[in-house]
Design a protein around this nucleic acid. Structure first.
Lengths: 117, 117
DNA sequence: CGGACATCCGTACGTTCATACGGGTATGAC
DNA sequence: GTCATACCCGTATGAACGTACGGATGTCCG
């Protein structure tokens, strides 16, 4: 119990961590990041169609991700392309995104639908 | 864009993943898991004191974690001890919990080590 | 038994958040 | 210039969530 104190994560740290992780805790954002990890660059409209969500929702999700510095945008004419930020946290990408996908897929093998790689 | 479709994470998978990650997206639960990763076993009251949150909030957080199978409880008399589940997802523990803590700490080195409150 | 204690549960309240809608800006085509 | 497209933004609505309060359950002690 005294040990619990020293093992404590400060409330500030926890809040910041939770904020970062909460960006991965929403289906739309998660799918956007997952897609951008595979395709490198996509515009809002294509993402909206691919994920079958409204463009506003897509735009909103991308705005939050961008505000957190997880994605960058590149404007080409009237189209805005997004991609994962160069300094996207590697552990977040590698383990919270890629590994966890495997985790849930192996948990229900009867679905079986695996992507390549 | 056709590539975006095949690179897509299904809505079901994304929802399940988001649900799992959302358990780490809340300061109280995050601090509980972090503490349990260090101390092995703690009861509700001690956790509440150590984290400086109400006992109800602690109990509620533990209930959710337990419903997701992330922690187990052991009742000893009128005290209930919680610990990380034996099959706590390893990538979740190792990278989303331990590595990300390092991440945020190294991200702001000027603050250094502090837990003022 | 009766009282104190640790925890849980149902409920209610306030907040946060994702989405949809309307309007606005900028770019490219005719 | 006018029109259509692609996107962004402010606002509102509805849902989900975390916390506090009162009461209930189960447990130890004298």
């Amino acid at each position: 119990m005294a040990a619990a104190r020293s093992a404590g994560l400060s409330a500030d740290h926890a809040a910041e961590l939770a904020g970062t992780l909460s960006l991965l805790s929403e289906p739309t954002r998660l799918r956007i990041l997952y897609a951008l990890d595979h395709v490198e660059e996509l515009c809002v409209g294509d993402l909206a169609v691919a994920l079958d969500v409204g463009e506003d929702a897509t735009s909103y999700a991308l705005r939050l991700l961008r505000a957190a510095g997880l994605v960058n945008k590149r404007k080409d004419g009237r189209v805005v392309y997004y991609r994962l930020s160069d300094d996207f946290p590697e552990p977040l990408l590698e383990h919270c995104l890629r590994r966890l996908v495997d985790l849930t897929e192996t948990k229900r093998p009867q679905h079986g639908r695996r992507d390549r790689r």
